[in-house]
Structure formats: C-alpha cells, structure tokens
C-alpha cells in the first residue's frame, strides 16, 4: 500500500518536473519546483512508513521548512530583478 502511494507520488513529481521544463515563464518553473518540494515532503513521510523507520519524519519536517524558505528566497530574487529591470512601473498593480 505504501509502495503504491510512493510510486504515485513519484509520478506526480515527474509531472511537476515536466512543467518545470516546459516553463514558459520563470514563475511557472518556481511553481513546479514548489510543488515538487511539497511532494518530496510527502514522499519522505510515506517512505518512512514503507521502511518502518519513523525517524524519516524529522527529515520531512526540516525539508518542509527549507523548501518554503528556499522558494520565498528565489521569489524575492526574481521579483527584485524584475523590478530593477523595468524601472518605470505602472501603478495599476
């Protein structure tokens, strides 16, 4: 049961990777990477149960935190570059 769930999660991760390759914008790629990260958290949790080693959950918790902070950091970076490239910003947003 856990093995089947793990394989399905891997399929989902592959689909997310496909979106990351397809793009087309940088935000699509970050979205895909974020999704890949949350699926990784679930995969680690399921894998911990699959092998009967619940210690893996600590890794999953840490991964969830790092994934979140990483995505936010990359987004800040992208946003900063976009804002500095296009100096005259319109006011509608």
């Amino acid at each position: 049961m856990f093995a089947a769930a793990a394989i399905c999660i891997l399929v989902v991760m592959a689909l997310a990777l496909a979106r990351a390759f397809l793009g087309p914008t940088v935000c699509d790629r970050i979205l895909a990477v974020n999704m890949f990260g949350t699926k990784t958290v679930l995969l680690i949790a399921v894998y911990g149960f699959l092998t009967g080693r619940p210690d893996f959950l600590d890794i999953a918790i840490t991964y969830a935190l790092i994934n979140f902070i990483g995505v936010i950091a990359v987004l800040k970076f992208v946003e900063g570059i976009a804002d500095s490239e296009q100096q005259p910003r319109p006011d509608e947003f």
Partner: peptide, 9 residues
C-alpha cells in the same frame, strides 16, 4: 508570493 512575483514580472 508566487502570484505577486508573477504580477511584478
């Protein structure tokens, strides 16, 4: 944050 960044880009 993603939606905001998309708006800004």
């Amino acid at each position: 944050a993603l939606a905001r960044a998309a708006m800004h880009t």
